[in-house]
Nucleic acid binder design. Structure first.
Lengths: 329, 329
DNA sequence: CTGAAAGCGCTTACAG
DNA sequence: CTGAAAGCGCTTACAG
C-alpha cells in the first residue's frame, strides 16, 4: 500500500519538493504553468499528502475531539438526544474543515485515554458533551491548556453553551398554573446533574411565586424512575392536579402510572415534560413539553470552539427554551 | 503549549533517546534500574509521545474510522439504533486499543473527504455503517485497498455483518399466521435498502408457504410513511386482519391509523414490527416485533475488522433474529 | 518565483 | 544491554 510522496510528484513534474508543497498548500506565488504541471502530476499519481508528516511540522491537525462524557449509568449516550447532538456538531465541524474524532469517556480508564490522546497532539481542541456536574474531565483537560468548550455546563474552567433550564422549567410550571392547577408536583432528575438542579429551581420559583406549595419526588431521568416517582406522589397527595417532570422519559413513565390509577390526562392531572424528544409526539395523549433548541445549541457550541481557535478566550452562552403545547397539559 | 520531547526525557534520565523509546514501547531488553530512571523522568516531565512523529515512522495509527454512510434523507443517523451502534462499536474498538474517528458521509463532498482522510493515513482501517444498497463509498475505499468491514451489507467488495432480515421477517409473518390470521399485509421499507428487500422476501415466502395472498404498500421507514401505507391498505382490503411492518417506526404509524379507524389491536388487526426500538415498549398496545441483536452485531463487526488486521481476508457473518412477543400480536 | 537545506519528534536497524 | 545515525514525508525560513 505504498502511496506516492511529495518527492515522486516533484520528480514527475520536474520541479522541487518546495514548489510542489506550495502548490498543494495554495501558496499563490507559483507561476501558472508550473502550477499546472504540478497539478497534473498530482492527478496522475493520485497523490494525497501524508497526514503524520504534515502534522509533525505544522503542529496542527485540523481535527477536533468530540468527547461524550458518559456517566457510569450510560445516561447521556442512551439519551435520545445523543445522536442528534453528535450529528449536528459533526456536520458543523466538518463544514468548517475540522475532522471529528468521537471519544466516549465513561470510566476513569477512558478518561485517561482521552487525556493522553489529546495531549499527544491528535487534535487541535476539544468539544465536550458533558452534563455531569462532578465530571473530572474538564479539569483534567483544562490543566493541560487544551482549547476546549462544553455542550452543557460542566465546570467553571470551560466556556459552555447551555439551554435555560431554569427559565424553561418556569415556563412549564406557569403554564400549568395558568390552567388553574394549584397542586403542582415535580419529578426531578438526578441531583448531581446541573440541569436537574436548574430545572428544580425553575419549578420552585414559579410555584412559590404563585403562592402554591411545592411537592417533589426524586427521579433519575429514566422512564421507570418517573413511574415510581408518580406512584409516590399520588400516595403523598391523591388530590394533585398537575405534574412537571424534569424530562420527557420520566413524563412518559408518569403518564402510564396515571392511566393505571384511572386518572385522566389532562382532565384530572395535567403533565408537562422537558426536552421534546421524538417519543413525546407518540404518547397518549401527546406530551406537552419544553423544547430546548438542541440543534441551535450544538451549532453554538461549535461556533464557540472555532472562535476560541481564532481569537482566544470566549464567554459562555445560555439559550432560551420554549413551550410545545400538545394535549397532556 | 510546548510539550516535553523524547530528547528532554533522555537528558533528564541520563540515557539515549533510543533507550527512552524502548522503555516507552515496552521493549524488554532494558536494564531494570535504567528502566526505572526513564519512567521517573517520564513521570516528572509528564511526557506523552507525539503522535504525528510516531505515526510517521511506524506507519500505523491505531485508529479506525467509523464511517456512517448517511443517505440524503438522514435515514440512518436519525435511526434510534444509530447511537447504540456507534456506542457499542466505539467501546469495543477502544477496548482493543483502537481510537475511533467518527465520520458522517452523506454527500458526495463528504464521501470525498472521507476518502482523502483515509488515504492520508489517518487511520489503519474503516468500519462502515451502511445500509444503503447503492452506496458508492465501499467501492471508493475498496479501490484504495483500505482494510474495511461493513456493519450491514453494502457491497460485494467488503466483508459485512448483517442480521437475518429474511429469516426475521419470516418469523414475524409465521407468528401472525399461527394466530389464525389469513389476510396478512406488509408495509415495506425503501426498496433501495437491501434490508428492505430481504424483509419483503421473508414476508413473501411465509405468506406463499401458507397459501395466502400477499398485500403490500410501500413505505420508507418513517413513521408518517407507515401511517399512509396503513391508510392505503385499509382502503385496499377493509377485511385485513394482520400487518407486518418492515420496521417499528412504520408499525407505530400504522397503530395510530388503525386506532383512528376504530380497529382494535390485536383483536381486529394484529401488528408486528421489526428492530425492537426503545419506543416499541411504550406504544399502546406495546408492539410485538423482531429483535435484531444490534449489540452482538456491532461487536461482531468490530471483531471482523480486528481479524482483518491480524490475518487478512475474512468472511461475512449473518446473525439470527428472534421474535419479541408483546401485546400487538 | 524557485530550490537546497534544515528540522519537526519519533523508531529502528546496525554496531559495539 | 545501549547508543549514534539514518530516515519517515512533509513545511518553511533563507538564499538567489
Amino acid at each position: 500500500m505504498q502511496r506516492p510522496t511529495l518527492d515522486a510528484v516533484a520528480a514527475r513534474a520536474g520541479v522541487s519538493k518546495s514548489t510542489v508543497s506550495r502548490v498543494i498548500n495554495g501558496v499563490s506565488t507559483v507561476a501558472p504553468r508550473i502550477r499546472e504541471a504540478v497539478l497534473d502530476a498530482v492527478g496522475e499519481l493520485g497523490y494525497v499528502p501524508n497526514a503524520a508528516a504534515r502534522n509533525l511540522v505544522t503542529r496542527r491537525t485540523d481535527a477536533v475531539a468530540l468527547v461524550v462524557s458518559d456517566p457510569p449509568k450510560g445516561l447521556v449516550s442512551d439519551d435520545p438526544l445523543f445522536a442528534a447532538v453528535v450529528r449536528t456538531a459533526s456536520r458543523a465541524l466538518e463544514a468548517a474543515g475540522k475532522q471529528v474524532v468521537l471519544m466516549l469517556a465513561g470510566s476513569d480508564e477512558s478518561r485517561e485515554r482521552v487525556e493522553r490522546y489529546v495531549v499527544a497532539g491528535h487534535v487541535d481542541g476539544v468539544m465536550l458533551v458533558s452534563l455531569h456536574g462532578a465530571d473530572p474531565l474538564p479539569y483534567m483537560l483544562a490543566r493541560k491548556r487544551v482549547p476546549m468548550v462544553s455542550f452543557g455546563r460542566s465546570s467553571a474552567a470551560v466556556p459552555y453553551v447551555e439551554n435555560d433550564n431554569e427559565g424553561g422549567a418556569g415556563l412549564a410550571v406557569r403554564h400549568l398554573l395558568g390552567l388553574g392547577r394549584r397542586r403542582v408536583a415535580t419529578i426531578t432528575g438526578p441531583m448531581d446533574l446541573i440541569a436537574s438542579q436548574e430545572r428544580l429551581a425553575g419549578y420552585n420559583g414559579a410555584v412559590r411565586e404563585a403562592g402554591c406549595r411545592s411537592m417533589m419526588a426524586l427521579g433519575d431521568f429514566t422512564r421507570i424512575s418517573g413511574a415510581e416517582a408518580m406512584d409516590q406522589l399520588l400516595q403523598d397527595d391523591p388530590q394533585l392536579d398537575a405534574v412537571f417532570a424534569a424530562n420527557d422519559l420520566m413524563a412518559i413513565g408518569a403518564l402510564h402510572v396515571l392511566r393505571k390509577h384511572g386518572r385522566r390526562v389532562p382532565d384530572d392531572v395535567a403533565v408537562v415534560g422537558f426536552d421534546d424528544i421524538e417519543a413525546a409526539q407518540y404518547t397518549a395523549p401527546p406530551l406537552t413539553t419544553v423544547r430546548s433548541p438542541m440543534d441551535a445549541q450544538a451549532l453554538a457550541t461549535v461556533e464557540l470552539l472555532l472562535d476560541l481557535f481564532e481569537e482566544g478566550a470566549q464567554e459562555s452562552v445560555v439559550m432560551p427554551c420554549d413551550l410545545v403545547i400538545r394535549e397532556s397539559a
